[in-house]
Design a protein around this nucleic acid. Sequence first.
DNA 1: ATGGCCCGTAGAACGGGA
Length: 264
Amino acid sequence: MKLATWNVNSLKVRLPQVLDWLAANPVDVLCLQETKLRDENFPKGALAEAGYEAAFAGQPTYNGVAILARRDTVGVPADVIVGNPRFEDAQQRLISATVGGLRVVCAYFPNGQAVGSEKFDYKLRWIDALIDWLGDHCRAAGAGAQPPLALLGDFNVAPEDRDVHDPEKWAGQIHCSDEERARFFRFVDLGLVDAFRMFDQPPKQFSWWDYRMMGFRRNAGLRIDHILFDASLAPRVRACSIDREPRKLEQPSDHAPVIAELGD
DNA sequence: ATGGCCCGTAGAACGGGA
């Protein structure tokens, strides 16, 4: 079973790239962030033709998340929950569904803008509420009362200096602050494992590059998109990598997809 | 040194992204 996450920065603009990517990479689950679409405009018909069933939650202009499930392997997303029941939020950043025996959580963490800002405070509270909610899920899953958990998405957190192209420049900055990093490792404390770091990886592997300053050409990026599996799934993780290819296309998203593979 | 791009909503710039 293969799962992936991709911040597409407008599914309207990127739909052709998503369809092409799925044709070349027929993953079982694809989590999307920043769809930036009203629900009535979500391209469920085009995705269904491509063999994918979708659960989605959008709004105009900003945010928006979706879980795509390959119909012939994992069927239709079930028990869909939009948002975090423990956090009142007008922004569509979170959607969960049971797919292929897994509880898949697709998350678009707040950006936070600048450390100490109001948006930063919202980011921390949003993450705290997610840790609180998923913590209970992990405990229930550990007792066999819930399906095992996979958390995929744009975390807007670079967990370690090796996830940053220029750690000195970014030290203490948004995505790299101690507050944000500590929260990333609170997910780890729940028993979740960063699939990417289960394997030897080449240095300077990033999932986002600024559109400006020729960020991609210079590989001036951050690794802020992640796939985490709970403790029961960790032994099944076979691979995890970042696919830089779509970032090379004309009119790319500024994020690249991350893919993980689970064995039986 | 600064900011340099892209997207949606507009129907011109601006907010937001990271």
